[in-house]
Design a protein around this nucleic acid. Structure first.
Lengths: 234, 234
DNA sequence: TATAGGATAATTGTATACAATTATACAGAA
DNA sequence: TTCTGTATAATTGTATACAATTATCCTATA
C-alpha cells in the first residue's frame, strides 16, 4: 500500500496493459495519432500484439487523463487541446509551479539541489552549442527535479500531468532561440533563489517563468496551431 | 467530440461500467469501504450483478482518481488520505479557488449570479435553523456554482476532483456550529465581491476561505482522524 | 438523380474461459 | 514449537466468444 496519489501514474510498466498505456500515450504526445483521430481497439491490439482487453483498460485511463475520449458504443478519439486550454493550463501552472518552488525551497535535499545546479549549467552549455533536442530534455528534467523537490506527492503528480499535457506545444517553443536563452536564465534564477532559501523570490520567479513561457508562445504564433485540426472532429 | 477535458468525468452513467464506477466511488467516499480494505473483482461484480470486466475498467479509473490502488497480481485496495495529503490539497485549493473566483468575476452569467445569491441566503436560513445536512449540501453547491462560473473546463474539473476528494472530511467540518456560521459569511463576502466585479478581492477572499476551512479542521482535531486506519495497510 | 429503407458488416460492451501469479494450508524436519 | 517446502486453492491478467449497437452499402422508389 505504501504509496498512493491523487492521480497515480500507471505503475506496472511491464505488464501488457502498462506497455499499451505508455505506448499509446507516447504516440499521442509525439503526434503519431492526430487530434480527432479514431482509435480502434482491435487495430491497436494487433499492432501491439495483445487482445482488446488490456487496450480497453489503457483507453479508460487515458480517457481520464484527458488524452482520449471514449464515446459509448461509437468509438475512441484523440482529444485536442484548444487555445483556451493552453491558456488555462499556463495560468494554473503559474500558480502551482510557484507553490512548488516555495515548497522546494524548504524541502529540497542536497542531492536534488546538486542535480538542479548541474542541470542549469549543462543546459546553458547545450544552448551555447545550439543543441536544441538536449535543451528540451534538460528543460523537462529541470521541472521534474523541481516537482520532486517540493515533497508533496499531490502537487508533484498534478504538475507532472500538466507538464506532459502541453508536451506537444513545448517541444516547439524551446526551439525558438531567444526563448531557449531566456528560459535558461530563468531556470538559473529560480535555482539560485531556492539555494539561497528565499522562498518568496523562488515562488515569484517560478510564477513568472510560466507566464513568460506562455507569452512567448503567443508572440510567436505557436498557439494558433491549435483549434485547427478540429475539422477532423466532425 | 464536442467536449473533452484534462480529466473528464465518467460520463456514461447508464452503462454497466458507469454504474459500477459511480457505485464504488460513492461507497468509498461514504466510508462503506474503509482505508486499506481489499476489493475483489469477483465479489464486487456479484454484488452489482455484472462480470469482472466492467468492474476492472472501473477499478482502473478509480485508481487514476486516486481512490484505489491496484497492485499487479495481488489485489486492489482502498487508498487513504493522510494528514499531509489534506494539508497539501487545501494549499493547492486555496490558490486555485482564488483563481477560480477571479475568473468567475469576469465570466459569471446572470443566471449563475442569481443562483449564487440565492444559495447564500438559503444557506444562512438553514444555519439559523440548525439544518446541518442542508447546509452541507448548500456548501457543496456554492462551490460547484463557483467552478461553473469561471468558464474554464480545466480549472472546473480540477477543483471538482479536489472537492470530492476531501468529501469525507468536509462532511464533519461543517457540522461544527461555529465553522458553519463563519463559512456562510465567507461565502457571502465572496459572492458580493464577484457581484461588485472586484476580482482582486474575490480572489483574496476565496484564498482565505480555504485557509480558514483548513485551520478550523486542524483546531478541532478533525485531521488526526487520518493516518489511523493505516494499520490495515501493513 | 436523390432519397429512404433495410440487410450486412464492423465496432464496441460484456461475459466467460483459461493462463499466470499469489495466497493458504498442511506435512515434515530442525 | 517453529520453520520450510510443497500441493492446493484463490485471485488477478489476458484472450476469446457472444451480444448490442452503430456504420456502411446496396436496392428500390419517387
Amino acid at each position: 500500500m505504501a504509496d498512493y496519489n491523487l492521480k497515480d501514474q500507471v505503475s506496472d510498466k511491464y505488464s501488457l496493459r502498462g506497455r499499451v498505456f505508455h505506448k499509446i500515450r507516447e504516440d499521442i504526445l509525439n503526434g503519431k495519432y492526430k487530434t480527432g483521430e479514431e482509435l480502434r481497439e482491435a487495430t491497436i491490439g494487433e499492432e501491439l500484439g495483445v487482445s482488446r482487453t488490456p487496450v480497453r483498460e489503457a483507453f479508460r485511463q487515458l480517457e481520464l487523463e484527458g488524452l482520449l475520449k471514449m464515446v459509448p458504443n461509437k468509438g475512441t478519439y484523440v482529444t485536442g487541446i484548444t487555445q483556451k486550454d493552453v491558456k488555462d493550463i499556463y495560468m494554473i501552472r503559474s500558480l502551482l509551479e510557484g507553490l512548488c518552488a516555495r515548497l522546494a525551497t524548504e524541502n529540497i535535499t542536497d542531492e536534488q539541489m546538486n542535480e538542479m545546479e548541474e542541470n542549469v549549467y549543462l543546459s546553458e552549455f547545450h544552448e551555447s552549442k545550439g543543441h536544441y533536442d538536449q535543451m528540451a530534455q534538460m528543460d523537462n528534467r529541470f521541472h521534474e527535479i523541481l516537482y520532486e523537490s517540493c515533497d508533496s506527492k499531490m502537487l508533484e503528480h498534478l504538475l507532472r500531468d500538466f507538464h506532459q499535457y502541453v508536451y506537444r506545444v513545448r517541444k516547439m517553443t524551446l526551439s525558438s532561440e531567444k526563448r531557449g536563452k531566456a528560459s535558461n536564465l530563468e531556470h538559473r534564477e529560480i535555482m539560485e533563489a531556492i539555494k539561497a532559501g528565499n522562498c518568496d523570490k523562488a515562488e515569484k520567479l517560478a510564477n513568472l517563468h510560466m507566464i513568460n513561457a506562455y507569452d512567448n508562445m503567443r508572440k510567436n504564433g505557436l498557439i494558433e496551431m491549435f483549434d485547427q485540426d478540429d475539422s477532423a472532429k466532425k
